[in-house]
Design a protein around this nucleic acid. Structure first.
Lengths: 309, 309
DNA sequence: CTCAGCGGGAGGTCCCCTCAC
DNA sequence: GTGAGGGGACCTCCCGCTGAG
């Protein structure tokens, strides 16, 4: 049990009420909940990503307006000076590929890369003990090893200093692609954040064994966040992004763009049957019209209860 | 021609490259483009809305973690002090209903409300002239009136001062629901922004007639932004928000939640036929399973070219 | 160790002004 | 008009410190 992804219904109602049925705000909220709560992104990282998106919108308008700084500034209520700085920033980023602050990888690098780096730097050969600490009998080592869950990857158990250094190394690696001014210095606060995230998600397990007086840390999972949920969340974000693109084609009235929504009530006992038929029907439809080498198309659909309105 | 909603393909490619195929960033970018470029929201307004969404995510975790400030702070790399302030802010907002900075109405109030307020404050009876200015012959008045597009609503033509005062009134009205500290003072910069937005969208027309030495302003449209496009953009944002909700049910593995995606190639000449059949098929399916008083359900779908991957 | 406070620095959003082309 | 520069106010995100319980 690593995540509390189920929000109590009253809390969810509160959040819904807070954004006051404004769909744009609802999208932002869902995105924040997904990336921060499930993905483990920092608060500041989400704000930076949103700022970058807004900057790109400004840049896009700047180009369309014939590179007119003042006009662009008026359109979005931004100082000309700031517009210029933003344009420079974006152009520099586009030129030397990627240096904008985005959510980039779906999860922070320092969280997803940890299990791999741990196993690489502190491997544990089949016969070897996982406990590197001195001054323990082999029985004591064994009892510590057996306190780990069976699903834990075989890797060395670290002490406080080793664990801290590993996290710092991870942070440095995640920063080294960024240009100078955008780098974030390592700090105690950041260290605590990363450590807490790893423990909270169950990727790392803290062992407070009575045999040793210092806390030990064990790698408890081969990947950050549980496998199934992780993949479904990624698929969701992916789908929403693509769906957004499809609807924009529909807004532009492109040929071959279709958008639809069906609202209906279904008898509870026929609900499963209906959804299954829908799934098969759409697959059959796609097969029927499929032709190799034709226009590449995609159809997305989602159905469920409409308990919000 | 009021909007340049078509981005040149190379620019769009640049933007895509900037977010580096990260779907979460792509969603943010689309949202920024929709609300800022099409909706006319300010840069700062979008940032505020994103910040509010992130704050709500923090608040939600705070509640789930048993109101533990420190834990919440570690999880998102936020100072305990700041967490406390955020929680207070949200709770105050939830208590006295709505006072958070959100995109709220789909477009800024001062833009959508202008045509109505103009016609209310400066009506023009059928026989009356639209030009209120003194010292003109009736022939000169008529020539000015005839320079307006035929679709323009009948309302008085304003001079610089009247127009400015109308905008200031609009701004005051849009602010009066907000609590004290969140209000934004009226300023020249804001005035220029709103004026420019109105002219840029074609809601207001500036008349530089050689007959008068001062600029005149005429109401050119009964609504901010062209009717058709406006509604489709709203529908898009609405759809994406609901789709996001449906997929979250799917991530939670709720019963009755369905998510699907079909990828296929279609012969160009059969594309229209295929989409039409799909549309009818889904409608027939919804009708078949519909039963009054049953479970309220919704099905959303979108199809189009997949020229991104 | 947790919780509370206060301090500072950097950078961003806002505002206004002037001056040369 | 547009670009380019100056100024200052305020807030927020980061960091660090101290002290009470």
């Amino acid at each position: 049990m690593t995540y509390q992804s189920q929000v109590p219904p009253d809390l969810k109602q509160d959040l819904l009420r807070a954004v006051d049925n404004s769909p744009a705000d609802w999208i932002l909220l869902n995105l924040a909940l997904s990336t921060m709560k499930m993905g483990g992104h920092r608060y500041g990282a989400f704000l930076d990503a949103a700022t970058t998106a807004a900057k790109l919108a400004i840049y896009s308008t700047f180009i369309e307006q014939g590179c007119n700084i003042r006009k662009t500034g008026f359109l979005y209520h931004v100082e000309p000076k700031r517009v210029k700085a933003i344009v420079h920033e974006i152009q520099a980023a586009l030129a030397e590929g990627q240096s904008l602050k985005v959510l980039n990888s779906k999860e922070p690098y320092y969280l997803i890369a940890l299990p791999f780096l741990w196993q690489e730097h502190f491997p544990c050969a089949p016969g070897e003990t996982q406990v590197g600490l001195q001054g323990l009998t082999s029985g004591e080592r064994k009892s510590i090893e057996e306190s780990l869950p069976p699903s834990a990857p075989r890797a060395r158990i670290l002490d406080q200093v080793e664990f801290t250094e590993l996290i710092e190394l991870l942070h440095e690696m995640s920063q080294e692609e960024l240009p100078g001014p955008q780098r974030m210095a390592f700090s105690d606060a950041l260290m605590s954040h990363i450590k807490f995230r790893l423990l909270h998600s169950g990727t790392v397990l803290q062992i407070d064994s009575p045999l040793v007086d210092i806390p030990l840390y064990a790698l408890a999972s081969g990947s950050y966040s549980p496998k199934g949920e992780q993949e479904r969340v990624f698929a969701m974000i992916d789908d929403v992004a693509r769906y957004f693109g499809l609807l924009q084609a529909w807004v532009r009235e492109d040929v071959g763009a279709l958008r639809g929504i069906e609202v209906f009530d279904v008898a509870p006992q026929r609900s499963q049957e209906a959804l299954q038929e829908l799934d098969e029907m759409l697959r059959a439809w796609a097969d029927k019209y499929h032709q190799d080498g034709g226009l590449p198309m995609v159809l997305q659909f989602a159905a469920g209860r409409r308990d919000y309105d």
